[in-house]
Amino acid sequence: MAILVIAEHDNAALKSATLHVVGAAARLGSPIHVLVAGSAAQGAAQAAAQAAGVAKSIHVDAPHLAQPTAENLAAQVLAIVQDGGYTHVVAPATGYGRNVAPRIAAKLDVAQVSDVTAVVSPDTFVRPIYAGSVFATVQAKDAVKVVTVRATSFDAAAATGGAGQVESRPAVPDVGRSRVTGQEIAKSERPELASARVVVSGGRALASAENFKLLEALADRLGAAIGASRAAVDAGYVPNDYQVGQTGKIVAPDLYIAVGISGAIQHLAGMKDSKVIVAINKDPEAPIFQIADYGLVGDLFEVVPQLTAELAPR
């Protein structure tokens, strides 16, 4: 019996979440197999085999898996699971994993446990509910456990040091009926929000899209990703994928700087596992200060440029 990890990758390489999922999988049992379903994805498949704790990387290559639809990816995973004797199917709780995992679970007629933040035992998991204001400990009764794990809650497996093999498997045919016809990925020199070491986030107090440039300057200094509160997204200052919170991205960087964010529970749910939280807000009563390690009461339009200047290379 084995653990199957569904890799998130861009064909050339693994996405960072995948190594965290391998880290989580190690707590469920062994051996760990990583499925890399893609097109010309040898690079990702190789990387998966080398990750610490991985016994085998299963590489499936087909044009329709280049940017797979949930339908195609689920069909592929099912084909592997059905002849493989797996106890667990584990995917990252990212847009990629969340899209496909329930489809697999339903086809297997098993429950899914979403967004796992801790593994108690191979069938018992901790997961946040109610926007992270409550944590539930859940036991899954089905023979196969389908889980998505929150990457930020588990340490990444080492990228090298594993001695896994790459095993090629044939692809199942294209399910058809749906296809990806376009992609608009915001090109950015910045690190990915979900995995950045430093995140600078802005709230409604920024007051305009233009003012987010202030944060860009600061983020450039820190090599940080930029995030935002739902209020700032709703106001149209930044795109939706900047949103940190219950219904947006969950982040847990080493340093989180919240600028002009009051700290609604839904926002806190997305960032309170950050190692160090800095809050800059002109309202001394803002709830964000109750969880910030370092609070600075002041006008962000003065403080942020000062901070950027202070961080200039010495």
Partner: peptide, 10 residues
């Protein structure tokens, strides 16, 4: 909505 942007499916 996908991580990092938008995807169009038909």
């Amino acid at each position: 909505e996908v991580d990092g942007g938008l995807e169009t499916v038909e």
